[in-house]
């Protein structure tokens, strides 16, 4: 039914934070995602530069993407970024082992700040097109993915592989979580001020096993 496409649905808005070491190409990922190819030139200084609408399983979701691109060294700002995020894209480059290591710190920080171990996260191995420079093998990335219970994707901003997929996956996680919160009576949501709140949340884990998408 074509008309159902426009059926009324409250459109949701999510804040997605893209994190990763400098030079892993995470800004390429963001730019590729927000940048519709039919826009002649991309101006990042306007208010809407990082807002985009995606359709996830037939639901319209408005994403505001926070990318720390270029300001990775302002460590103090990270806290602020993370606080606003409802979902996180942890990006490393498959050509740099150190960039994967960095994610460990970032994830710890996210969990500390959000005070929630089940916060939606997607792990992205970027620069998947540079096969001959690969330093992080898939098994390694996959084991981390399992440990963190977060899906892992290998993507390439350059060839636009899996770019939309990672964002959509994250949206799906956020939507599922949102729905679960709406429906469960006793769950509540706050910014994670207090540690005790997370205990309750931990038992409500219904995520499927981690997925691994490779090229």
């Amino acid at each position: 039914m074509p008309s159902s496409r426009y059926a009324y649905q409250p459109s949701r808005e999510f804040h997605v934070v893209v994190l990763g070491a400098g030079g892993v190409g995470k800004s390429c990922l963001t730019a590729q995602f927000v940048h519709n190819e039919w826009i002649e030139s991309y101006d990042p200084t306007i208010e809407d530069s990082y807002r985009t609408q995606v359709s996830v399983d037939g639901r319209q979701v408005m994403l505001e993407i926070l990318d720390t691109a270029g300001t990775e060294q302002f460590v103090a700002m990270r806290d602020l970024y993370m606080k606003t995020g409802q979902g996180f894209l942890l990006v490393f480059s498959i050509t740099s082992r150190a960039s994967l290591q960095e994610l460990v710190t970032l994830r710890d920080e996210i969990i500390r700040i959000k005070d929630d171990e089940n916060i939606p996260i997607v792990i992205v191995g970027n620069k998947a097109d540079l096969v001959d420079q690969r330093q992080v093998d898939r098994a390694k990335a996959f084991s981390i993915s399992q440990r963190w219970q977060a899906p892992y994707y290998e993507a390439s901003a350059r060839t636009r592989t899996n770019v939309d997929e990672v964002f959509v996956d994250l949206c799906r996680q956020m939507l599922r979580r949102d729905d679960a919160q709406e429906h469960s009576q006793d769950s509540y949501y706050d910014k994670g001020e207090d540690p005790s709140s997370s205990r309750r949340r931990r038992k409500r884990k219904q995520k499927q096993g981690p997925r691994c998408a490779i090229l």
Partner: peptide
Amino acid sequence: LGMFLTDLTFVDVGNPATK
């Protein structure tokens, strides 16, 4: 400064070198 750095990063990566 960070604001300019982010802008410049995205101008750099968001626009192709040739058209």
